[in-house]
Structure formats: structure tokens, C-alpha cells
């Protein structure tokens, strides 16, 4: 019963496409707002999906976000095809970044992306294969309210 989807939708992200970066996270935020998800969860999910989207834009060739909502949870799955992450423990450290000089000048590459996702999610899983891509599972519980 609890696995019944209230909503299931996929979004494509193009690697390197800075001019459309943020579009997917904004669309997802609008959807979550519209279907009446708790505002504090909408904010946390928006932060997490923005960071994940920017990682695809900056480091991958392409990616796909799957938004699945059941009565009890909101699940954002990000799958990308690209360079992957060599050392996940290192990538999860605040301040660590492999961003280029140009990205840093634009205000990216603060090394806050993955830590911000983990901080905001109720559950977070990351898996990566070097040279193939990275998969993130970002989960929010809907059966409780208030801040994490």
C-alpha cells in the first residue's frame, strides 16, 4: 500500500549546459509545492536536487532525475553518465572540489554540493563507477513534519 506512487516523473539533464542549469530543480520545486508537500521538505528537497543537478551539469555528460512520491516518501534518484567519482569519502568532505578555475570564478566548486545534499536528506546513498557515472538516492520521509 505504501509503495503506491502518488507521482512518478523523469527529467533529463544535459552535461555542460550551464544556460539551462537549475531548470530541473525549479520544475521539481514547483511540482512539490503544487501537490502540497510540507514547505520545509520542499526547501530541503530543492537544495538537494539543485546541488545534484549542478554536479551533472559540471561533471557528467548527461543525467536523469527520477522523482517518485509515495504517501510516505519522496525519492529523488539521479543517474548520470560521465567521469564518476574516484574517492567518494573525499568527495563527501566539505571543501573538497574538483571544479575548474572557471567554475570557481562563477561561484561554484565550494566543495559544499554533496555535503549539502546529505545534510538536507533524510536518507542519502551514493554509488559511483570511475569512467561510467554516479548514482544518487536522495530520500525524504513524508510521514513526519518539521525540520530534520
Amino acid at each position: 500500500m505504501n509503495d503506491e506512487y502518488v507521482l512518478s516523473q523523469k527529467f533529463k539533464i544535459k552535461g555542460g549546459d550551464f544556460s539551462n542549469a537549475g531548470r530541473t530543480s525549479t520544475s521539481i520545486k514547483e511540482i512539490l509545492k503544487e501537490i502540497g508537500i510540507d514547505p520545509s521538505i520542499v526547501i530541503r528537497a530543492s537544495i538537494a536536487v539543485y546541488e545534484a543537478e549542478m554536479n551533472v551539469v559540471m561533471y557528467a555528460n548527461k543525467g536523469m532525475v527520477t522523482l517518485n512520491i509515495t504517501p510516505v516518501k519522496l525519492h529523488l534518484k539521479l543517474e548520470d553518465e560521465g567521469q564518476g567519482i574516484a574517492d567518494i569519502d573525499q568527495a563527501m568532505k566539505e571543501g573538497f572540489s574538483t571544479a575548474t578555475h572557471e567554475m570557481r570564478e562563477m561561484g561554484f566548486g565550494a566543495g559544499m554540493g554533496l555535503p549539502n545534499i546529505k545534510k538536507n536528506a533524510d536518507r542519502f546513498k551514493i554509488a559511483s563507477r570511475l569512467g561510467e557515472g554516479t548514482t544518487l538516492d536522495i530520500i525524504f520521509c513524508l510521514n513526519k513534519t518539521g525540520n530534520k
Binding site: 550551464f18 542549469a21 537549475g22 530543480s25 525549479t26 520545486k29 530543492s46 539543485y50 562563477m106
Partner: peptide, 15 residues
């Protein structure tokens, strides 16, 4: 901010 590129707009919209 001193940032002038278009990605700032997505951030403003999102938040």
C-alpha cells in the same frame, strides 16, 4: 553578490 552570470537567476528563483 558580485556574480553577474545567468546561473544566479536560477538560484534566486529556486529559493
Amino acid at each position: 553578490t558580485l556574480q553577474i552570470h545567468q546561473n544566479t537567476i536560477a538560484v534566486a528563483r529556486l529559493k
